[in-house]
């Protein structure tokens, strides 16, 4: 049986421990007296809005696409190819969309051309510090699909539709981050590393 004080016979606390973590409120205005009128008036109360953090660490597997990322960290640009039809994907894909076949790994050309692009002046929170950046889809000779990448070495202030068709070549981060951005593209005439 619980006693009137904070502990029972077994020394188990009957009151919740409090701490100073998270949001702590010291005073929210509230009617002093609760009667019919003040209860009705609660409907006119401003909404309580609070800000709270949320953080998650994910365990993300690249699964069958893993060799692509292993390739990038070794400065090799890999794609997939249907063993029978030869249909070639610039962005890894474990199974061909048209035959259902399991695809093979092939080395892709490291030179291509800008198929479509934009300059992101704004972005998601994660990428805001990187703006403005040039985002582009790259096409490659003999490859059936495109590759999404960042272009470095173009001036965002000199943006022009003529960038479409521009020849570009792959470059790799010195230190891999195991992201598709381990490879990026620069104009063909960019200085050699």
């Amino acid at each position: 049986m619980a006693k009137k004080n904070n502990t029972n016979n077994n020394n188990v606390p009957a009151r919740r421990d409090e701490n100073l973590d998270g949001t702590i409120v010291y005073n929210i205005p509230f009617p002093k007296k609760l009667d019919k009128e003040s209860l009705k008036a609660l409907k006119e109360m401003s909404p309580i809005v609070k800000r709270q953090p949320y953080h998650v660490e994910y365990i993300h597997s690249y699964g069958q696409d893993s060799p692509f990322f292993a390739g990038l960290s070794n400065k090799v640009f890999l794609g997939n190819r249907d063993p029978k039809s030869g249909y070639t994907y610039a962005t890894p894909r474990g199974a061909d969309m048209y035959t259902g076949n399991e695809t093979d790994w092939v080395q892709l050309p490291t030179e291509g051309a800008i198929h479509a692009f934009t300059v992101c002046e704004f972005g998601s929170e994660e990428f805001l510090p990187e703006t403005p950046f040039v985002l582009a889809l790259i096409e490659f000779e003999g490859v059936d699909t495109l590759f999404l990448t960042r272009i470095v070495g173009l001036d965002p202030d000199q943006v022009s539709l003529d960038w479409i068709g521009m020849k570009v070549k792959a470059r790799y981060l010195r230190n891999s981050k195991l992201k598709p951005t381990d490879v990026y593209f620069v104009p063909m005439n960019a200085d050699a590393e």
Binding site: H60, G123, L135, L148
Partner: peptide, 12 residues
């Protein structure tokens, strides 16, 4: 795996 880390922005 392939789009979000590069662009991460639908308007883009």
């Amino acid at each position: 795996s392939f789009d979000y880390p590069v662009g991460g922005f639908y308007s883009g």
